[in-house]
Simulated scan of single mutants.
Amino acid sequence: MNLYRSARAVAGASGDDMIDWRSAASAAKAATEPGTLDLEAGERDAYARDVRDAREAVRTVADVEFDVPDTIEIQNRHHWIDANIATFERVMGTLENQMPASTFPGVARTVNTGTMTVLLSFLGRNVLGQYDPLLLAETPDDDHALYFVRPNILNAADKLDVDAERFRRWIAFHEVTHAAEFGAAPWLSAHLEARMENGIAALSDGSFSRESFRELDAAMTVVEGYAELLMDHAFDDEYADLRRKLDARRQGRGPLQQLFRRLLGLGLKERQYERGKHFFETVVDARGLETASLVWEGPENLPTHDELDEPGLWLRRIER
């Protein structure tokens, strides 16, 4: 880690964009220890086996055909930053194209680049695994991807005092459930992209699209909740202790880390998980897993905000 080199990269931000993405990536990596990728004998095969087993288990439970991404990477923290910088650039670029020019573009670029550096560095140190559907990709046929950040997985397993192989397998199952969702619903990526673009367009006009945010939040709540539903049925081990310890670790973070989590919307993601889990548990108890899977037949089957809190309303609408 070299904070001086990181600061120099931010200070040297240049170009015509509101963020110098190359400088942000360089600065974030300079501020972040990469972690080791010295794989033990058989470890790469173990990752592949976990993904393969998860795919077969989820296929059986969900009764849906899907495949895992062709791109499956075991990464260090620097690799994760490099893999995600393009995603951040796509999202922010959509906003930038609609923003008015800054009075002091050089100053704004440096501040924005520094902010992105801090966020990338924080995420690079904390993300365990990631299913990336490559939203807003330039080419719609771009393949999705699956990443495992090995140093973070090992570090978290050590701090949680859990078996690293069991923890890694749990992460693999969770990310593969997301691949199953996007495989079961080919329309989902376009649905999420449209809500993101509408929300960004409203922000660029100085307004806030409550409807776009609510629809995006509802869809992501379904994504998180259904993933947990599949985990409950597909994972070949008890994992309540893993979830409990991970939640306790999040709650025990310091004030600065808690602030970053709020800025990045990670608290919102946890609320989506809890809310979505309750919705699907209620639906499955009432009608079974097959009925719960009807959410993926089309965007019109996604529950509304009100239906997420009252699953009976969704059931009555779907079963008409």
Results as ranks from 00 to 15, higher is better:
Ala156Asp: 13
Thr87Leu: 04
His79Ala: 11
Pro311Ala: 10
Lys29Pro: 02
Glu56Met: 06
His78Ser: 03
Gln257Tyr: 01
Asn155Cys: 05
Phe173Gln: 11
Met99Lys: 11
Leu268Gly: 14
Met220Asn: 13
Leu263Asn: 04
Glu238Phe: 02
Pro69Thr: 14
Tyr239Ile: 12
Val107Trp: 08
Ala54Leu: 06
Leu256Ser: 06
Asp142Phe: 06
Phe279Ser: 12
Phe88Asp: 14
Arg253Cys: 07
Ala172Trp: 08
Leu246Lys: 07
Phe235Tyr: 11
Leu39Asp: 03
Asp45Val: 10
Val118Cys: 04
Gly129Pro: 00
Ala101Phe: 04
Leu242Cys: 08
Arg44Pro: 04
His144Ile: 04
Asp143Asn: 13
Lys245Val: 09
Ile200Gly: 10
Gly265His: 02
Asp236Gly: 15
Ala194Trp: 00
Gly288Tyr: 07
Phe213Asp: 14
Ala24Asp: 08
Val295Glu: 06
His178Cys: 05
Gly298Cys: 03
Glu300Gln: 14
Arg22Gln: 13
Ala137Phe: 07
Asn97Phe: 05
Phe182Leu: 14
Leu123Tyr: 01
Phe213Ile: 09
Val68His: 07
Ala185Glu: 04
His174Gln: 14
Ala27Asn: 03
His174Ala: 14
Leu188His: 03
Thr60Leu: 03
Glu73Arg: 15
Arg253Pro: 01
Ser26Gly: 04
Arg44Ser: 12
Asn155Trp: 08
Gln98Phe: 04
Phe260Ser: 06
Val295Lys: 09
Asn84Ser: 12
Glu56Ala: 13
Phe279Asp: 11
Ala48Ser: 14
Asp247Tyr: 03
Ser102Thr: 08
Met99Gln: 14
Gly252Met: 07
Leu136Ile: 07
Ile85Gln: 05
Glu33Met: 05
Arg317Ser: 09
His305Asp: 14
Asn112Glu: 01
Gln75Ile: 00
Ala292Lys: 10
Arg271Pro: 00
Phe280Asn: 09
Thr94Val: 05
Asp163Met: 10
Gly206Asn: 12
Gly312Thr: 09
